[in-house]
Write a protein that binds this DNA or RNA. Structure first.
Lengths: 194, 194
DNA sequence: GTCTATAGGAAGATAGAC
DNA sequence: GTCTATCTTCCTATAGAC
């Protein structure tokens, strides 16, 4: 397991550097040279541990996907009513202007064209939708939510609002745009108290 | 005005080729050489009409932004109740798997870092949010919508759901994911008939 | 495991001829 | 307006020494 310390072995440093660069610049915008410099590793080191850029990117994407899933589960798996858990997920702290390290990759043509690189992205967002579907269903079962809603549709809307919130925030250069979209969704989801 | 015919002048062909490549590959993933080949123009031609890649990209982005705004206005400016117009906007035909040619640019580090390139993106999404805000306000005024909703928040949620819908569709490789998110939002927006 | 050397091609232009 | 030549740096490796 990765220790997180500055002097981890080269393989670890390369993966972490790649994760950071993929988040910031995407796959197309990330070169092996930039990775090596960020990791403090030479070319020989990189090509010893990985067969090339796609191989290293795959390791980085898989780890990022796993971390995102774990972070979501920490919030969604908490105790409490369905609405509260969805609200906690939507309001959880985020590095909004950096965008979503997983969702971002969907705009990368070379990630989308490569089934192996796309798979962790697809699986992570799919898992998240499934997890939220179950929670919305809970809310319907216990009478917290009402109306004609289909759980899997609401779950998709929640994930889409978050992903689109990043787009609005980055376009405007301000995290406020993300929060506004999320508050709108929470108002629509909010159990009516007539 | 651009005639759309195959043998337009080189400047037009360069702009159209750049629009297409920016949509598909983003700014970082689009090279002058690729643009010239797609446009059937040489280097001399490109650098005669434009000072460089950023200049050409700016012309392309401005045109794409203008077209997106016009397309949205055709649907949002139609006659009818607020809900129907928002529904028409959400359900309008889209090249879902290609993503949004404007929103996509927010994931490009060099677009976001350059205020001139980012401006058309920001202005277009901001215009769209404003236009939707007015329509939601209309719906509240005439009693079509009820509840604690703030128009500008709902408008942001609508735009975010669309932008995030593209992310889900591209991740899964299927336009269905977009539609699911949109249907969830429509269910939440749907005027209750108790 | 890591380093340096080497390599063919692309990126992003500039200069000058036609 | 468009073409070709030229330039520097970067991209994405492979080979072989240490």
């Amino acid at each position: 397991m990765y220790s997180g310390c500055m002097s981890a072995n080269a393989s670890e440093r390369l993966i972490e550097a790649t994760r950071s660069l993929l988040w910031e610049r995407g796959y197309v915008g990330t070169s092996p040279k930039a990775i090596q410099q960020a990791a403090g590793a030479g070319q020989g080191s990189m090509y010893h541990h990985f067969t090339g850029k796609p191989d290293l990117a795959l390791a980085a994407i898989r780890r990022t996907a796993e971390e995102m899933r774990a972070a979501a589960e920490r919030v969604l798996g908490a105790q409490g009513p369905a609405y509260a858990r969805i609200e906690a997920y939507l309001l959880r702290e985020r590095d909004v202007l950096r965008g979503c390290p997983v969702g971002r990759l969907t705009m990368d043509p070379e990630v989308i064209a490569d089934d192996e690189l796309r798979a962790p992205v697809d699986e992570t967002l799919d898992w998240l939708r499934g997890r939220l579907t179950g929670i919305v269903q809970e809310g319907l079962d216990n009478g917290e939510f009402s109306g004609p809603m289909r759980p899997e549709e609401i779950a998709s809307t929640v994930v889409a609002t978050v992903q689109g919130g990043y787009v609005l925030a980055r376009a405007s250069g301000s995290p406020a745009a993300f929060d506004t979209a999320v508050r709108g969704l929470l108002a629509l989801l909010s159990p009516r108290t007539p």
